[in-house]
Design a protein around this nucleic acid. Structure first.
Lengths: 142, 142
DNA sequence: ATAATTGTCTACTAATTTGGTAGGATAATA
DNA sequence: TATTATCCTACCAAATTAGTAGACAATTAT
């Protein structure tokens, strides 16, 4: 399941995606207010998204956040990874957070095969779906 | 990611699946020793799997645990659900642990659609793959 | 009967993660 | 230089996860 943090991140990004055409950045406070997200928590989340190059920030008066790219180019997989980490069910099949098992021949391991297949299946969806697909979402999903 | 508990559960079940033909049940202690799982923790896990009708137990001398069904009939999805709960990324698309969002029209919600698609994709794999596919696994995967 | 064996169950505890807060530092603008 | 914002470090509380302890109940063998 997605963490609360990931849900907030997706909501904030949905908001920014729906304002992508506007030329002025959006304040943390504005997003927090409109989406009912604790402001200091959102602050930390947006900062993290900036470090992952999903967002661009500007400080001082007239500052705020904007998407680093076209909403159509930012996949849900990228967002989820940036906030929650691995999408795979086991580290030994994770593309971005790989860890090797002890005493395991991955070529012949049945768990490895099944979980790699599961990872491919879910990634095929989450890499195709982008912020553009969720930009009209208003609900605070569970 | 799967919890440690789910990994232990899969290891224990892999062990039982590989001994499915034997007519005598397997002791908790035997599984714990062979798979290097803390015995009291494994005890709780196997009990949970019994409550979910994945295992059958017998007490007293000569007792132990055995699979409730043919390994080919027990899907990884069933095991993971029994131990870790929902497989879906959001409650609002969970088949077995569904929860409705406030102020959301699921028919038109972009997040709902994307996450339902992701759930279908991963379930297609995890419901097809069974204990029979992992019965030869020995490694303590990560 | 009763002793030995083996799972059942309740109740803890420790460690980690999650969700969230406080407040000053730093940068940009006016 | 005052104001507006994000940046960053350091916390804190609650929940979850991982694991332990020990009495209890059922079954079998003697």
């Amino acid at each position: 399941m997605l963490s609360q943090k990931a849900k907030y991140a997706l909501q904030a990004l949905a908001h920014l995606a729906s304002h992508y055409k506007d030329d002025s950045p959006v304040l943390i406070g504005t997003i927090a207010k409109e989406r009912n997200i604790p402001i200091k928590f959102l602050e930390a989340i947006l900062l993290q998204l900036r470090h992952e190059n999903i967002l661009i920030s500007m400080r001082g008066p007239g500052g705020g956040y904007r998407l680093a790219d076209n909403p159509k180019k930012i996949s849900l997989a990228k967002v989820i990874r940036a906030v929650d980490g691995p999408i795979a069910l086991l580290s030994c099949v994770s593309l971005n957070f790989y860890e090797r098992c002890d005493n395991c021949n991955e070529k012949t391991c049945g768990i490895n095969r099944a979980m790699a297949e599961a990872r491919d299946a879910i990634l095929k969806v989450l890499e195709k779906r982008t912020l553009n697909d969720i930009k009209d979402v208003n609900a605070s999903f569970v």
